[in-house]
Design a protein around this nucleic acid. Structure first.
Length: 465
RNA sequence: GGCGAGUUGGCGGAGUGGUUACGCAGCGGAUUGCAAAUCCGUGUACAGGAGUUCGAUUCUCCUACUCGCCUCCA
């Protein structure tokens, strides 16, 4: 069995993945809050963990990997969006507006992530479908002394879990010293966090032992991972920004509710995405969604390639220049592997790179070597492990349909004449026209070859006829 | 203030205690009427300082700088 080494944030070192059950390798990744289009930063973990998912399926078998990624559809931003519609005059009940908003957003999310070539996880639970499980877990935590109800809220008693802070390397005392915690009179300790909070009539809510309310953010992942993967599973992933507090709180909840389990064995966190060297933010005006990029004509496969060209644990800078280079590389490779039957398995060099803590940049370098060595079957198969060069993402690279035969004949005839007359004016004229229309002109002793290039525009040629 | 990550050739970006990836750009050559495409060749860079070592870009410490999280934002 191939060894997969992964950097475990919890232990701060690489370790060998040793699945609790190799027949069912289990991975949970924190998914999006579905209130709006996914921005580019949201897409990085999706692509990163998609590659891991593909690698796990390759190593353990496609039927032996369970991948769960949740949809957070209980959230104040969603409520705000729905409330805004209601105040704009929509007569429907709030619950319906919320459901409509989340449905719509999930549809967008699927479309956008599909465009990046990300396989859909086997299970995509929604928080709203697991409210009962959350309430049960909260009750259990109260019974075990790890949580307490106060003024319609239920809070997790951070001091009751001695390892709190272990994942992110903080101590409760340090954090309180930092004094950036919300103080509330009903909290026993400023660090205690909300498991359940009351909802007024303008907010979605569910009946609970503590009155009508809604869950806090963190409990959903604890409840859903337990329901779908059990008290112990192999991998938990997400963006590094989730390390604290979200994942810290998940660990506290899950380990206290299910001390019989170990929760996640390996914690993986991808670093953040930047744009042209700066954090993507609305105020800087460099904020954009995946859909924005796709609509600008940046193919999903190009986005994917750019993401994978930087190791997931390093900040990734999105630049237009990288997109340009990625597109050129992919176009070239697609030309090479067109019509080639992929090898039965990926090249060892590529698999080994990925097995070394998802060294996707190293894997891409290996792809370059395969291309250079002319191992096109190997290139195609290996790229497939990275989710590249597949049929599903290739439409962008297909040249527009156009018959260039007439142009080729004219050019060839002019060239033949020029060879005798030594007057190449007509040849150069035709060549300039073709190049201007985005056609790559290749002339050799063997003859004239016209290849539609990246910016090929058949309309411009027709206008010249 | 607390915690953490990072600083590699013109650019991007891997990696390694000693044989110096890979891509793009550049340069030289082959080829071409000229080009394009292609092919061949070409570049000893690892923030600064100290230490460990026979030897450090790679390990340790210090300094500088950059960035992230700690706050709804992946």
């Amino acid at each position: 069995m191939t060894d997969i080494q992964l950097y475990n944030t919890r232990t701060r070192q690489k370790q060998r993945l040793e699945p609790l059950d190799p027949a069912n390798v289990r991975m949970y990744v924190c998914g999006p809050t579905v209130y709006d289009r996914a921005h580019l930063g949201n897409a990085r973990p999706v692509v990163v963990f998609d590659v891991l998912y593909r690698l796990l399926r390759h190593v353990y078998g496609a039927d032996h990997v369970t991948y769960v990624r949740n949809f957070t559809d209980v959230d104040d931003k969603i409520n705000a969006a729905a409330l805004a519609r209601k105040q704009a005059g929509d007569p429907r009940p709030l619950e319906e507006l919320i459901r409509e908003r989340t449905e719509e957003t999930i549809g967008w999310y699927h479309a956008d992530m599909d465009a990046l070539g990300a396989l859909r996880p086997g299970q995509e639970p929604r928080a709203t479908e697991f409210i009962g499980a959350m309430i049960a877990m909260i009750e259990d935590l109260i019974a075990k002394g790890h949580a307490y109800a106060a003024e319609g809220h239920v809070l997790f008693r951070v001091r009751s879990y001695k390892d709190y802070g272990a994942l992110s390397g903080r101590s409760v005392d340090d954090m309180i010293a930092g004094a950036r915690v919300e103080v509330a009179p009903f909290k026993e300790d400023p660090m205690d966090f909300v498991l359940w909070k009351p909802s007024d009539d303008d907010l979605p809510g569910w009946d609970s032992p503590w009155g009508r309310g809604r869950p806090g953010w963190h409990i959903e992942c604890s409840a859903m991972s337990f329901e779908l993967l059990g008290p112990s599973f192999d991998i938990h992933g997400g963006g590094i920004d989730l390390q604290f507090p979200h994942h810290e709180n998940e660990i506290a909840q899950s380990c206290c509710a299910h001390p019989e389990g170990g929760f996640a064995t390996i914690w993986l966190h991808n670093e953040m995405l930047q744009v042209e060297g700066k954090k993507m933010s609305k105020s800087l005006g460099n904020f954009f969604t995946v859909r924005d990029l796709l609509e600008q004509g940046v193919p999903g496969e190009v986005i994917r390639f750019v993401f994978l060209s930087t190791h997931y644990r390093k900040p990734m800078d999105w630049t237009a220049e990288k997109a340009r280079e990625a597109e050129a590389t992919l176009r070239k490779w697609r030309g090479l592997v067109a019509g080639i039957e992929p090898a039965p398995s990926p090249a060892p060099e590529v698999t080994e790179a990925l097995c070394d803590d998802l060294n996707t940049a190293g894997a891409i370098a290996a792809l370059h070597r395969l291309a250079g060595a002319g191992d096109l079957a190997g290139l195609k198969a290996s790229a497939g492990l990275l989710g590249l060069l597949g049929e599903d993402l290739g439409a962008w690279a297909d040249a527009p349909v156009a018959d260039l035969g007439g142009w080729a004949e004219r050019l060839a005839a002019a060239r033949a004449a020029a060879m005798d007359s030594k007057d190449f004016a007509e040849v150069d004229r035709l060549k300039a026209l073709l190049i201007g229309a985005g056609v790559e002109v290749r002339m050799s002793k063997a003859g004239v070859e016209l290849v539609p290039g990246a910016g090929f525009d058949p309309a411009r040629l027709e206008a010249l006829e």
